[in-house]
Design a protein around this nucleic acid. Sequence first.
DNA 1: CCAGACGTTGTT
DNA 2: GTCTGG
DNA 3: CCAGACGTTGTT
DNA 4: GTCTGG
Length: 225
Amino acid sequence: MCGRFALYSDSFSLIKRFEADALPELCPRYNVAPTQSIPIVREESGKRRFALARWGLIPHWAKDMDIGYHTINARAETVASKPAFRNAFRYRRCLIPADGFYEWQVVPGSKTKQPWFIVLRDREPMAFAGLWERWRSPEGEDLESCSIIVTDGNELMQPIHDRMPVILAPGDWDTWLEAETKDAAGLQGLLKPYSAEDMEAWRVSMMINSPRNDSEECLKQTNKI
DNA sequence: CCAGACGTTGTT
DNA sequence: GTCTGG
DNA sequence: CCAGACGTTGTT
DNA sequence: GTCTGG
């Protein structure tokens, strides 16, 4: 599962890393929560462009936004066939940039969960496999929204949580973003747990629990168990 | 045929 | 919009 | 994902 | 318990 992440890299680094333009003005974020507006990368006429989308995908047929509370993640195993996601999987795939993400570990005998922060060992921003949609509200306003695809946790994640976001290696970005895809099975094949050896995790304080806390302190390692 | 769901996680 | 359940 | 609210009327 | 806000 992936219900909170961080995105604090500066614009220059993000543009360089994702080779995309039109990055909106961003401030560093250490505690991004569902329903917030987040940057996505998609391909428009062969070029990568940034855009903002509300986190929590609202299918075009939804009559209100409520479903968005339950579509912050899409299961890799079923994303190709579920009514809420299959059209987006076929036609509207995107990358969702993050410097790291948070997961909450259930600790036996403890009433509270232990939050962890997970990054790539090389500290580069990662790309979650994402989907986006455009929804027209009853008032006639268009809203773009998105979802992060999740899969089984790898060996690093397993002790922490059984699910993790799908992270795509740079070499797979073009394949994922390509509008014309003859090979749906090939896309499905990209939705695997990322290599655990290339990731790193540490405990962080309960401060992360409240989405109101959005400072660099959220990343600080703690020994609390 | 029409009505109603369409989602994830975690917990029960 | 499209599929499933009744 | 977690935290925090969850209600009405009337008055300031 | 469940929904909304962040």
